[in-house]
Computed example of a mutant assay.
Amino acid sequence: MAVYAAHLTRTLQGTPSLFQVTAQEALGSTVKPALQKVVEFLAATYPNKCGWCVGWYDELYLLFDCCLQYYYLKHYAASFSESFYGLLRVPLTSCSEFSSGQQLPLHLEKASLALLVLLPYVRDKVERVVDRWREDNEDGRLGKSRADRARRAAIHTYSIIHTACACARLVTLARYACGAGSPTPALHALRLTLRDAPPREEEEDNWKDVLRNVMTGQIGSAVASLPALGALALRGAEWGAFCVQLLRWWSARAEHQQALPTPPPPKRDEQTLRWKNKCPLCLQSWKIPTVLPVSGYIFCYICISRHVRAHSSCPVTRCPAAETSLVRLYID
């Protein structure tokens, strides 16, 4: 049984497991929202100096991510998250080994950088625009003009493309689990796959040498040791990413073990009797009845989704609410 499980985990010698592949992708998707929380905190603490960073966060992260991924692709032939899990990008077929050793050719390096940095940036921008058009369509703000029909077509087209990409990713992972192909469609398009990276060589200089040279007045030697500080900063970024993953796991674990007690239901208001079997917002019979769990009132879906999206609260009790908490009811 153990041998069979090991075969499922690693299909070939040196081939990363599906856990490593999915874990490095999860790490890559965690860094951006984690840094966004830091930027939002700085903007709230120093609004005059850092307030502009919130509006330009996507562009700032694009620049940061470009520098970070370029460094790791240049020195380790892997992205930041792949290098964190000890992975390496190699050619898909053994007959096309790189002539430059543990380095990507220049054209593959540029293509990898574009897929790692530009593609997520464009995808996030397009997704936000499509989500805004989808909300307008659900709220009935899209008319019958040519522009509105084009927006509806874009919504359906994006949904089809998103489904096709998800299916392609599933097929790619299935083929990779069987020992063929690449773990992601992006790597497959570049004719690359992932392998376990060899151990890194330790730097001759370290931060202790820098401190010792500064304390003794040997500024020239300290400047020569500055690359060690860069390596130390990158190692700190890797451990910071690990801490983010640990806190994320701990937060999800704490939500299940330390759940707050269920609050008592709100007192019945006699004035709400006129809302019986009606939406409290439009005072009409329910259209797609939807309950807001924080208060227990039933609304029309369009009415309550529009209100919660704009005010983030229940229109009757004023309790904080989110659009993701809405529950559709199926009433006979």
Rank of each mutant, 00 (worst) to 15 (best):
Y4W: 09
A5M: 09
L8W: 05
T11W: 06
V21P: 03
A23Y: 06
L27I: 12
G28L: 02
S29P: 00
V38F: 03
L42S: 08
L42E: 08
A44W: 05
T45Y: 01
Y46H: 12
C50W: 06
F64H: 06
L68F: 05
L73W: 02
K74I: 04
Y76Q: 13
S81K: 01
G86N: 09
R89L: 14
V90M: 04
S99V: 14
A114W: 03
V117L: 01
R123T: 11
D124G: 07
R128Y: 01
N137L: 08
E138R: 12
E138P: 01
G140F: 12
K144I: 11
A147E: 12
A147K: 11
R149H: 10
R152S: 06
A153V: 11
A154I: 00
I155L: 00
S159L: 08
L170D: 08
L170F: 04
V171C: 07
T184M: 08
P185D: 14
A186K: 01
H188D: 13
L194P: 07
R200D: 13
E203F: 02
W207C: 13
K208A: 14
K208W: 10
G217W: 07
A222M: 08
A228P: 10
A228R: 02
W239Y: 08
G240H: 07
A241Q: 06
F242I: 13
R248F: 10
S251K: 04
R253S: 12
R253K: 05
Q258M: 14
R268Y: 06
R268T: 09
D269S: 10
W286A: 06
F299P: 10
C314W: 01
T324P: 00
R328Y: 04
Y330P: 00
